[in-house]
Design a protein around this nucleic acid. Structure first.
Lengths: 297, 297
DNA sequence: AATTATTTTTGTCTAGGACAAAACATGCCC
DNA sequence: GGGCATGTTTTGTCCTAGACAAAAATAATT
């Protein structure tokens, strides 16, 4: 029984309005869905996927008339071409520019546009991750102030939380508890990790910063989480991090995995055992235990 | 020139779909908008206001057939009646219950339902404000753990940020910079204050917690804010708060108002001059300098 | 090469009609 | 009076097909 989507499903999932979907069908012959007994449109997963790609390219300035005639493969090809010539490295510079000089209220809009353009996954990996480094750097060299750093963090938080809410929650997959160690103030990496996990359908129990170790353990057990994730910023002392992670590992039941990520979790002085370290966001997806429901992606 | 809204404006602002708006008009004769030259619907502010109320009551289980015939006054009356018999004091107890025992994932849904029911303003004043106290209390007496406190804060943050984004941004009114003093970790009160100000049409530059005083000043001047707002939780040392506020007042240009709120800002040891103190959220709205555009509310 | 005019493309709006799912009302039995 | 099966009304979403202005692309001009 192949999955089928109604026209409102598609509107929600792709961000293309019902009216537009219908008129594309009339004009370009795509997407041409099947009909149910009530002659309502039923779209397939392929059509959804194709429309997602089209929407991305649309936001990048291409025209629907051209795109509607292309198949999945061709769309992918164009996406790649675009990406090579496009934005990504310059996006960081542009954001820094806004932060350093620009109108303060422009940041949110720009972040949202980038999210739309890249999709959440790439936005996290290719925009936010380098941007976080760049912001730290820019502060260090005095190009921007603490104020701007805070502003960046706050606006990013807003964009990510919104994105998080709009992700479909599939219950039944694995569950993770995410927080930072006591002493760690920075919650942005945490939020980014949450997004990565949520993208893979993991139910995330997000706890904010600085949860005492004992409470982490209690929460993980009570909420039946199979993963505990810890985010460590580069500003943390490596030694402290390592010590605390080892202690946490001892406190946690063996069947719960302990994951640690962020710049503060790489190059740890003593490599603790039974702890999975992530040095970049894109290592997260492959590490997630396979869920029987997850077929593709 | 009275403000006019298109049907998609109304869909966005009220959350009632285009189709539904049209069919209500057909069936109940309301809302019956004016038409422009192109015979497109143009709704008035009154109709928008009325529909907002209707949507609230709808979410509370009333039927549209009845509500559509009522005028603004009658709708207000019903809303009040509802509220009197409803929830409010029990809501806090119920939330605590969920927090202490309930399924962890139920909290977000309940918070969202309450927000819908009460509207943002009342949700802040009559649910979250007492709830914050209650949570602190419950932690103190050991009824809930740090874990649950964090969980509550995080979910509330999520709900509020979503609400914040959906508020219409009217540029042109006054601007405020909001943050906490160095040493203050709690950002929830900050977010609540932001919502109150945003509700009144103030443009808020939200900076998160712990901004150094010099940076606050720089930000306020650069972004041309007329108000600087500081949120102080009850966990802060009063003396420290007072000292820092006085210092900040000296650093700030005289034409920028300095506001401080939250439990940590009441009963300050020495009452500093030139600083407006708020002991509760509902004092915020009246304090906002009148904006020529703001006619009603 | 830069403006300006013309043509094409595109999305949003319109009108009524249809129909199933949800909410409500009624009757019945325990 | 409370629980349950029934019929009735209410309600939201979907349908078709046409219209038109705003935006984008192309052609024509300075």
């Amino acid at each position: 029984m192949p999955l089928q989507f109604s026209i409102s499903d598609l509107e929600r999932e792709t961000g293309i309005s019902r009216d537009t979907l219908r008129i594309w069908e009339r004009r370009y012959g795509f997407p041409e869905p099947q009909r149910n007994q009530r002659s309502e449109r039923n779209y397939s997963v392929e059509q959804l996927e194709r429309l997602r790609l089209i929407k991305q390219l649309l936001d990048n300035g291409m025209r629907p008339g051209k795109l509607a005639r292309l198949n999945l493969q061709q769309l992918h090809q164009i996406t790649l071409q675009q990406r090579r010539t496009e934005t990504v490295p310059s996006a960081v510079e542009e954001l820094l520019q806004i932060l350093a000089t620009g109108p303060r209220y422009g940041l949110l809009a720009r972040l949202e546009a980038l999210l739309q353009q890249q999709g959440l996954r790439d936005f996290l990996i290719e925009v936010l991750a380098p941007m976080n480094h760049a912001v730290g750097e820019a502060w260090f060299t005095g190009r921007i102030g603490v104020l701007d750093e805070h502003h960046y963090a706050e606006q990013t938080r807003m964009v990510l939380l919104a994105a998080l809410r709009s992700l479909p929650q599939r219950p039944g997959s694995s569950r993770a508890l995410l927080t930072t160690l006591p002493g760690e103030q920075h919650g942005l990496g945490l939020l980014m990790a949450t997004c990565m996990l949520a993208l893979e359908g993991v139910e995330v129990l997000l706890l904010g910063v600085q949860t005492p170790l004992e409470e982490i353990v209690r929460g993980a057990i009570e909420s039946e989480c199979s993963i505990v994730g810890i985010s460590c910023s580069e500003y943390m002392n490596r030694r402290t991090v390592a010590t605390q992670l080892v202690r946490l590992r001892k406190l946690l039941p063996a069947e719960i995995s302990l994951w640690a990520g962020g710049s503060g979790a790489s190059n740890l002085p003593l490599m603790p055992k039974g702890i999975t370290l992530f040095s970049s966001l894109d290592q997260i997806s492959p590490a997630i235990p396979l869920d029987p429901l997850t077929v593709e992606r």
